[in-house]
Amino acid sequence: MAAAEEDFEFQLQQEEIQQHKREHGDPFTYTDPDDGTVYEWDQEKLAWFPKITDDFIAAYQANYGVTDATQQRTASTTQQTQQQQQQKKAKKELKPGEKRKANDPEWFDVDEVKNTNVYVSGLPTDITDDEFKDLMQKCGIIMEDAETGQPKFKLYRDQNGQLKGDGRCCYLKRESVELALQILDNYEFRSHTIHVEPAKFQLKGAYNPALKKKKKKKQKKEKNMQERLLDWRPERKEPLRPKHERVMIIRNMFHPKDFEEDPLVLNEISDDLREECEKFGIVKKVLLFDRHPDGVASVAFKEAEMADAAVAALNARWFGGRQLNVALWDGVTDYQIQETDREREERLKKWEEFLDKGADIKKEVTTEATTSTTTTTTAASSSTAGESDRGKTEG
């Protein structure tokens, strides 16, 4: 019964709305009886606003006056309002659960402010890539491809693979484009007058999404590339050497048993080795693998060339009665030897004995010093007493 009553009331409301439309027109519009201004109801803001029509604009211009700029802004506002109304209407027409169709894909123009490409024409048809690169570098740094690391320029060819006499170059900075237009436009190059202009990209054929490059997360890589290109320091002409070639390995420098009696010898050898190696360059780290049976030590230099000089000077030299075997580290071999639990206990036991021995020696030295001081004091007292007795006798 309740559902039937609700349906009946809803039907009565719809009939009243239809009757109001027939008598008064659209229920969402209102005409002012005094001046005839038409207002429309904004459902979102819940308020009446003047309806923007051609008659309303003409009446507004006649009453308040308008300039050309104002007319343009008004026309733009009118167009935007109409577009918004069409969008709202399209949303209302959507059925429940139906999604709005996306806009058809299309090519977009490159922003002039961000465009760092220039188009060059009038080039010789036998120009090489190196010649074109040297020519364009006169006006700035050429961008490098983030994937290949190669400079981004191109000489165009025809269907037969022959050069057409034109090309494109991508600079790192926008200022280089302006400089190229001033310097290289109408520039004489090998008896050819070349022409330079900002590059324009046009669509050839129908739009194909498969040809569009996919966006990749390479902002950090591109930033590092730009910082390297803008770095003022000169580039290394020789290829960079591996980091492990900065480390020098020395064999037969000691024997593990050398540290059993006096563990402090380890520090003495390390200090002597650092002092000797600093003659060849900056030493970053010195390690002694005291458990290795071959008596291995390693020295890390700041540069590989420093390690080369140290190897050449120290190999086959004698140290503490042992002939050294010196070479660069291969980057793979691990000279660290892990001790077992038993070996660790023995090492700690020997270390305690060493400390106790040192404490006993210190105690003996202190006792001897105290005894010597007491003896000296007694002798001095006896001497003073004897002199006093002699003085009394003489008196």
Rank of each mutant, 00 (worst) to 15 (best):
E222V: 11
S191F: 14
T116P: 00
V332A: 05
A102R: 10
N208Y: 06
P33I: 12
T53L: 02
G167T: 01
K204H: 09
K214L: 00
F201V: 03
K220M: 13
Q87P: 09
W329F: 13
V196F: 01
A307W: 10
F56I: 00
C170M: 14
N315S: 06
Q150H: 06
G161D: 07
G25V: 05
Q61T: 00
G36Q: 06
E178C: 09
D271K: 12
V110C: 02
N117V: 04
L123T: 08
G386Q: 03
K200Q: 12
Q13Y: 15
A62W: 01
L179V: 00
G25T: 11
D258G: 02
D111E: 07
E178D: 13
K133S: 05
K212D: 04
I269A: 01
Q85L: 09
L163S: 08
R157N: 03
N115Q: 08
Q13G: 11
N208C: 00
V247Q: 01
R322V: 03
Q137A: 09
F108D: 11
K152D: 07
K164F: 03
Q87S: 00
R347C: 02
E147F: 05
G25N: 11
R246M: 13
P27W: 00
Y64Q: 05
H24A: 13
L328P: 03
L12K: 12
V311S: 04
L94W: 11
G165M: 08
Y30Q: 11
K133W: 15
Q85Y: 07
K392I: 06
P96Y: 02
P33S: 14
R390L: 02
W41G: 08
Q14H: 12
R174A: 11
R236T: 15
G25A: 02
I141D: 05
T366M: 13
F132W: 13
L328W: 07
W329Q: 03
D341Y: 11
V283T: 09
K357R: 15
S298L: 15
Q80A: 02
K350R: 15
A385H: 13
D308C: 06
V311W: 11
T370Y: 10
F301I: 11
I250N: 04
F254V: 07
E188M: 08
T373V: 06
E368I: 02
F354L: 10
A62G: 11
G97C: 10
D32P: 02
E197A: 08
P50V: 00
D126Q: 07
Q219K: 08
F56G: 06
I361T: 00
A146R: 13
H195R: 07
V265I: 15
L264I: 02
E275Q: 08
N115Y: 10
K285F: 15
G167C: 05
N315D: 14
T393D: 12
E339Y: 11
K243S: 03
Q71N: 08
D334F: 14
Y119T: 14
V66K: 06
G122F: 04
R190L: 08
E98K: 07
K392V: 05
